[in-house]
Design a protein around this nucleic acid. Structure first.
Lengths: 142, 142
DNA sequence: ACGGTATCGTTGCAAATGCAATGACGTCAA
DNA sequence: TTGACGTCATTGCATTTGCAACGATACCGT
């Protein structure tokens, strides 16, 4: 059997690539807005829907531990980017929603995100679409 | 401009996929051999070469902080899987090499790794090769 | 209505992490 | 040879992380 080569091991490659790209991008929003990765995720998720969203909903969909989401939300509340309130229908739930300040920040952030993504995909040329499709397949989408 | 959708954001997708797959695989070797992810990386890297390898060499190629490598190596030494020794030519360097016990463990581990990888790639069917090629391109290989 | 069970978000805590500082060693030029 | 500078691995420390435990609330069968 041929030798095992770590550099060609899929889980390893994915790990390295994801870490590199995330580091690069997070350096961007960290320096520009002073937010952390978990905070960015919460913000990005909140920006997608008008209605308030519970902590559970986020950590379900966003692949972060409950506590991570909870703490990120608390920081975002302190910094005035989101509001937390108890859901009156089900008092176990906490509703998160963007403040105007939060919305403004996301509005600045999103173009940067798009641009960053475009730059990355440029490296793949015409293979970009296929790569994304395969990524989605591995993520078990649709 | 169309709405920003986190689920379709490349850095996010890569992060999630890498985390999922790494979690899955690390659960395997953790339950079976009690080693952590950094330890697995060091072992996997050491298994690829006969000659001893310095800490620097590993953290350069393996995308881990120096201290992470150093601590993983110490744990692996305690558990008897590797040996650490001072390089006699350049006494700043620490040579890491597998013990027989370490080699035996890696020998068990590698087939599991291959199999795991195969299972993942199966989900892509005939696209697998292309996906890997694109991954390599993004990693800036060759 | 009541008890048992499940779900939600937060928190405590131990472990892992990243980063800077440190100390040991090498290199090189004068 | 010396001294300034660079490199290596480890360690200290503050922060982050994951996990379990907890209190509060909701749900469900009886």
């Amino acid at each position: 059997m041929s030798k095992f080569v770590l550099d060609e091991f899929l889980p390893y490659q994915l790990s390295v690539l994801a870490a590199q790209i995330s580091r690069e991008f997070s350096a961007l929003y960290k320096s520009r807005f002073g937010i952390t990765r978990p905070e960015w995720r919460v913000l990005a998720h909140l920006s997608q829907t008008e209605s308030p969203v519970s902590v559970r909903e986020i950590f379900d969909r966003v692949d972060m531990d409950k506590s991570k989401v909870s703490r990120a939300a608390s920081r975002l509340e302190s910094s005035g980017h989101i509001l937390k309130s108890v859901n009156p229908t089900d008092r176990r739930l906490v509703e998160l929603r963007l403040t105007d300040k939060g919305r403004a920040m996301v509005a600045e952030l999103e173009p940067l995100a798009r641009q960053f993504e475009t730059e990355v995909l440029k490296r793949l040329g015409r293979e970009a679409g296929r790569f994304r499709a395969n990524l989605n397949a591995l993520l078990g989408k649709k």
